[in-house]
C-alpha cells in the first residue's frame, strides 16, 4: 500500500497558501526526490505525510489511513521524518539515549531496543559518540544522530528534509552509501537543493519539482533535471554535465543534452569529436 496525496491544499493560520492542489503517490520502496526554491512548499508537504499538518482541503492516505483520523504518533511509526535542523529534534543527554527514545515511546522491549540502537549506531558510524551529548557534536554529526534516531524504528517511509545541508563531500558520500543501503527495503523521500548530490545516485530517483505550492513536473531524473525550462521555473541551476552539453549545442555542435552521467557525457563528446574529424 502506498502514500497517496490527493489534491491537497494547505493554508497556514497566517493566511499563506503553502500547498495548492498537490497530488502525489509514493509507492512501497519508492525513491523520490523533491526539489524547488525556498518557500515552494516542500517542507509543508513533508509535514502532511506524518500528520503534523492536516490538509485544509484534499486528503493524505498512508497505507489507506486518512491522516486526519490518525495521531502523529501512529503515523510516525510508518512515516519517519528527519528534519532539516537537527537542533529541533535532539534533546537527550547522550547519543545512545537519543536514538533509543522513540523506541521506548513505541513500546519496544529492552532487548530489542539494545539491538536496534547498536545497529543504528553502527550503520551511521556513531559508535564512538554513544556516551556524548548530541549538543556537543558538530553539525554533520548531529545530522547523522537525527537520522539514526528515526531510522532505528525502521519506518516504512523514510523522509529526509535537506540531509546534505552543512555536510562536506566525504560526509555526503557516506550519506549516499547509507541511503543506497536502505533503498529496496523501504521508501525514501528526500527534499534537497543539492542537484549534484541527486544526479550521482544509482539507481537514480524519480524527481518532483515544486514551485509556488504546486508540483510543476514529475518524472525520471534524466528527463526532469536536463530540461532547461522546468529547471528555471523551479529556480534550479542546471547540473554541470548537461550544462556543458547545452553550451556545446548552443555553439552549433550536434550533441545530446539529456545526459547526467559523466561517462555518458564523455562518450557523447568523444563521438562528436570523431564525427567532426
Amino acid at each position: 500500500m502506498p502514500i497517496e496525496v490527493q489534491y491537497v491544499w494547505y493554508t497556514y493560520p497566517s493566511g499563506i497558501e503553502a500547498l495548492k492542489g498537490i497530488s502525489l503517490t509514493v509507492e512501497d520502496r519508492d525513491f523520490l526526490v523533491i526539489m524547488g526554491p525556498n518557500g515552494a512548499g516542500k517542507t509543508t508537504l513533508l509535514k502532511t505525510l506524518n500528520g503534523l499538518i492536516k490538509p485544509t482541503k484534499g486528503r493524505v492516505l498512508v497505507d489507506g489511513v486518512d491522516t486526519r483520523h490518525a495521531t502523529v504518533a501512529e503515523l510516525s511509526r510508518k512515516v519517519g521524518l528527519v528534519f532539516q535542523n537537527p537542533d529541533h529534534q535532539l534533546f537527550c543527554s547522550t547519543v545512545e539515549e537519543e536514538i533509543a527514545f522513540a523506541l521506548r515511546n513505541f513500546g519496544f522491549n529492552e532487548e530489542e531496543i539494545k539491538e536496534r540502537v547498536e545497529w543504528a549506531l553502527e550503520t551511521l558510524g556513531l559508535e564512538e559518540y554513544r556516551d556524548v551529548s548530541p549538543l556537543m557534536l558538530s553539525g554533520g554529526e548531529k545530522k547523522r544522530v537525527a537520522l539514526a534516531s528515526v531510522l532505528v524504528w525502521d519506518p516504512k517511509y523514510l523522509v529526509l528534509d535537506e540531509p546534505t545541508l552543512g555536510q562536506d563531500y566525504a560526509q555526503k558520500e557516506k550519506l549516499r552509501e547509507i541511503i543506497c543501503g536502505l533503498l529496496g527495503q523501504r521508501a525514501v523521500i528526500i527534499v534537497t537543493h543539492d542537484i549534484e548530490f541527486v544526479v550521482d545516485f544509482r539507481p537514480r530517483p524519480r524527481v518532483a519539482l515544486m514551485a509556488d505550492g504546486r508540483i510543476i513536473a514529475e518524472g525520471k531524473a534524466e528527463e526532469v533535471l536536463t530540461d532547461p525550462e522546468l529547471l528555471s521555473r523551479a529556480s534550479l541551476v542546471r547540473p554541470q554535465v548537461p550544462e556543458v552539453l547545452f553550451n556545446l549545442r548552443e555553439k552549433g555542435l550536434p550533441v545530446r543534452t539529456d545526459v547526467l552521467d559523466l561517462v555518458e557525457a564523455r562518450d557523447a563528446i568523444i563521438s562528436l569529436a570523431r564525427g567532426l574529424a
Binding site: R238, Q240, E243, V244, F246, N247, L248, E250, K251, L253, I269, A273
Partner: peptide, 10 residues
C-alpha cells in the same frame, strides 16, 4: 565552469 569547458571543447 561548464561555459568555459564548452568553449575549450568547441
Amino acid at each position: 565552469s561548464p561555459g568555459q569547458m564548452a568553449s575549450l571543447i568547441s
